[in-house]
Design a protein around this nucleic acid. Structure first.
Lengths: 215, 215
DNA sequence: GTCTATAGCAGGATAGAC
DNA sequence: GTCTATCCTGCTATAGAC
C-alpha cells in the first residue's frame, strides 16, 4: 500500500522533471512558472516544492537527472571507439559529429539538450559549473587524447583544444540554431540533411586537423 | 526651453536603451524587471512605458537601435573589401573572423552583441524575424557572393552556405561561450589570445573552403 | 511633460485541512 | 503524504497629481 504511494509519488516526480525540462528548454528558467509546470505535469501546485524544495532546485535536478544522463548517451559511441585497438582521426571526428547530430537520442531530445546547455554557456552559474566539471571537461579530454593517439605526428595540444571547441561550436549551433540554418539553406532537418551536416562537419574538421601536414 | 526638455528626454531614452541592453544581454528578457532597468538608468519607473510603451517594445528597440547599428559596424570591413578589385578567399575569411572577434567594437559591446543574438536564435520570434531578414541574410549573401567571385573554381552554393554557417557558429561561440573557452584553454581574452583565435578560425575555415581542390 | 502612487495581477512558497 | 487555500512579494501598466 505504502509502496503504491511511493510508486505514484515517483511517477509524479518523473512527470514533473519531464515537463519542466521541456518548458525550461523551450523558454528558459524565468519565463516558465511553477503553475505552468505543475499543470502540464498534471500535478498540484505544491508538488514542486514538495518533491524538489524549490523552483531553482527543480531546475538543477533537470540537469542532474535528465541532461547529464543524455550527455552520457552521447559520449558512449566515442568511448566505444576508444576501446578499439586502432582508429583513424576521421573516425573520431565522424563519431563525434554523429553522436551529437544523429546519435542515440530522439530528435526532440537532441534539440532540448542543446537548448538547455546553450542557455547556460554564456556565464558561470551553478549549472555551468556542474556541467563543465562533470561532463564537458572529461569529454574534451577524451577527444584530445584520442587524436593524440592516432594522428600521424605529435600535435600541439593548444591547437587541438581550439579544434575541439570549433567542432563543439558547430554541433551545438546546427542543433540549436535550426531556424537560422533552415532559413539560410532552405532545408528541413530530415535524415538526408542531417547526414549531410555530419559529413560537412566531419570533412571541415578533418581538413582543419590535417592542415599543418605540409608545414 | 522646450528644446532642453526634449534633449533631456532624449538622454533619458538613450540611457534606458543602454541599461536595458546591458541587463537583457546579461540575464535575458524575463529575468530583468522594469524596476531594475529604470533604477540603473536613473529614471523613474514609469519612464519605460512613457518612452517605449511597454517592456516588450523596449526590448525590440534595443535590437532596432543598438544591436542592428552594431551589426552594420561589424559588416563594414567586409563591405570595404568587396569594393576592391581583387581579394583572396583568405582575406575574406580573415576579415570576417576579425570583424566579429577583434573588430571595430569594444570588447564589452562584442560580448553583449553575441549574448543578445544567441538568446534569440533558438526559436522564431519577432526579434529573430527582424534580425534574420534585415541583417543575417544579406550578410551571408555577401560572404557567399565574395567567395564565388574569388575562389579558383566554381563551388557548389549549398556547400558555401554550410561553410558560412560553420564560420558563424565559431565566431558566435568564441564570443559568447567564453567561460567554456577559458576553462578549456586556460586562456583569458587578451589581445594575444583573440589574435590566435582569429588565426585559428581563418585557417580552419580556409582549409574547409579549399578542401575539395583535389577532388 | 514628468513622475508619484497605485491598481491589478501573477509569481513562488507554505500552513494547515484532510 | 497529499493538496487546497492563502500569504506576501514583486511584476507591468496606468491614472492622475504636479
Amino acid at each position: 500500500m505504502s509502496q503504491d504511494h511511493t510508486r505514484q509519488a515517483d511517477l509524479t516526480r518523473e512527470r514533473l522533471l519531464d515537463e519542466a525540462e521541456r518548458l525550461f528548454a523551450e523558454r528558459g528558467y524565468d519565463a516558465v512558472s511553477l503553475r505552468e509546470i505543475t499543470s502540464a505535469a498534471d500535478a498540484h501546485l505544491a508538488a514542486v516544492n514538495y518533491h524538489f524544495g524549490s523552483k531553482e532546485n527543480l531546475y538543477l535536478e533537470v540537469f542532474r537527472q535528465r541532461w547529464m544522463e543524455r550527455a552520457r548517451k552521447i559520449q558512449a559511441p566515442l568511448q566505444e571507439l576508444e576501446k578499439r585497438e586502432h582508429y583513424t582521426p576521421e573516425e573520431v571526428v565522424r563519431t563525434l559529429a554523429k553522436a551529437f547530430l544523429s546519435g542515440p537520442l530522439s530528435d526532440e531530445d537532441r534539440v532540448r539538450h542543446s537548448q538547455l546547455i546553450s542557455r547556460e554557456m554564456g556565464q558561470q552559474s551553478k549549472v555551468f559549473n556542474l556541467i563543465s566539471q562533470e561532463t564537458m571537461a572529461p569529454f574534451m579530454e577524451m577527444a584530445i587524447r584520442m587524436w593524440q593517439r592516432c594522428l600521424p605526428q605529435e600535435t600541439d595540444p593548444e591547437r587541438l583544444k581550439l579544434i575541439v571547441l570549433s567542432i563543439f561550436s558547430q554541433v551545438l549551433y546546427f542543433n540549436f540554431a535550426r531556424p537560422v540554418v533552415t532559413l539560410t539553406t532552405g532545408r528541413e532537418y530530415d535524415q538526408e540533411f542531417v547526414d549531410q551536416l555530419v559529413e560537412h562537419i566531419t570533412q571541415f574538421a578533418l581538413r582543419g586537423l590535417n592542415g599543418d601536414k605540409g608545414k
